[in-house]
Deep mutational scan, measured.
Amino acid sequence: MVQRGSKVRILRPESYWFQDVGTVASVDQSGIKYPVIVRFEKVNYSGINTNNFAEDELVEVEA
C-alpha cells in the first residue's frame, strides 16, 4: 500500500514516465480505477508533471 509522500517507480509501459521515480501526491479511497496521483520532476510533452496510476502499476522504492 503506497501512501502520500512515498517514492514510487512506474511500471506502466505506455506511460511517459515508465521506469521513472515520482512522489505520491495523494491516494483516493473512493474506489476509482486509478486512485494514486504521482508527481514527477520532469514534465511530459504537454507540460504536465502529474498523472494517475493504479496501485499495481507502482512499486515503492522509498517510504
Rank of each mutant, 00 (worst) to 15 (best):
M1Q: 13
M1A: 12
M1T: 14
M1E: 06
R4Y: 05
R4A: 14
R4V: 15
G5A: 03
G5D: 02
S6R: 08
S6T: 12
S6K: 08
S6L: 07
S6W: 09
K7N: 04
K7D: 03
K7V: 10
K7Y: 08
K7F: 09
V8Y: 00
V8K: 05
V8I: 02
V8P: 02
V8D: 05
V8H: 04
R9T: 04
R9L: 10
R9N: 03
R9V: 07
R9C: 12
I10P: 02
I10E: 00
I10Y: 04
I10H: 02
I10M: 03
I10V: 13
I10S: 00
L11C: 10
L11N: 04
L11W: 06
R12Q: 06
R12F: 05
R12L: 05
R12G: 02
R12V: 07
P13S: 09
P13F: 11
P13C: 11
E14S: 14
E14R: 09
E14V: 06
E14F: 08
S15G: 02
S15I: 04
S15P: 01
S15N: 02
S15D: 04
Y16D: 05
Y16A: 01
Y16I: 03
Y16M: 02
W17P: 00
W17A: 00
W17I: 03
W17R: 01
F18V: 03
F18Q: 02
F18E: 00
F18P: 00
F18C: 06
Q19R: 10
Q19G: 14
D20Q: 13
D20G: 05
V21T: 07
V21M: 04
V21S: 02
G22R: 01
G22C: 06
G22H: 02
G22S: 02
G22V: 05
T23F: 08
T23K: 05
T23E: 10
T23S: 04
V24Y: 03
V24K: 01
A25R: 06
A25K: 09
S26G: 13
S26N: 10
S26A: 13
S26C: 15
S26I: 07
S26L: 09
S26T: 07
V27E: 02
V27F: 11
V27H: 04
D28N: 08
D28V: 08
D28W: 05
S30W: 06
S30I: 05
G31T: 06
G31A: 11
I32W: 06
I32R: 08
I32K: 09
K33A: 12
K33I: 07
Y34L: 07
Y34A: 05
P35D: 06
P35L: 11
P35S: 10
V36P: 00
I37P: 00
I37W: 15
V38Q: 00
R39C: 14
F40G: 00
F40N: 00
F40I: 02
E41N: 10
E41T: 11
E41A: 10
E41C: 14
K42W: 08
K42Y: 08
K42C: 13
K42H: 10
K42A: 06
K42T: 14
V43N: 10
V43I: 09
V43K: 14
V43L: 10
V43Q: 10
N44M: 07
N44I: 04
N44R: 04
Y45I: 12
Y45T: 14
Y45L: 15
Y45H: 15
S46D: 15
S46F: 14
G47Y: 06
I48N: 11
I48Y: 11
N49H: 07
N49Q: 07
N49G: 05
N49E: 03
N49V: 05
N49I: 05
T50S: 10
T50I: 11
T50R: 05
T50V: 13
N51H: 13
N51S: 15
N51Q: 15
N51Y: 12
N51M: 15
N51F: 11
N52Q: 09
N52T: 07
N52W: 10
N52C: 14
F53D: 00
F53P: 01
F53H: 01
F53S: 02
E55I: 14
E55R: 13
E55K: 09
D56C: 12
D56I: 08
D56E: 11
E57C: 06
E57K: 02
E57H: 00
L58A: 01
L58F: 05
L58E: 01
L58G: 01
L58Y: 03
V59K: 09
E60L: 15
E60R: 11
V61M: 07
V61D: 04
V61F: 06
V61A: 05
V61Q: 04
A63K: 11
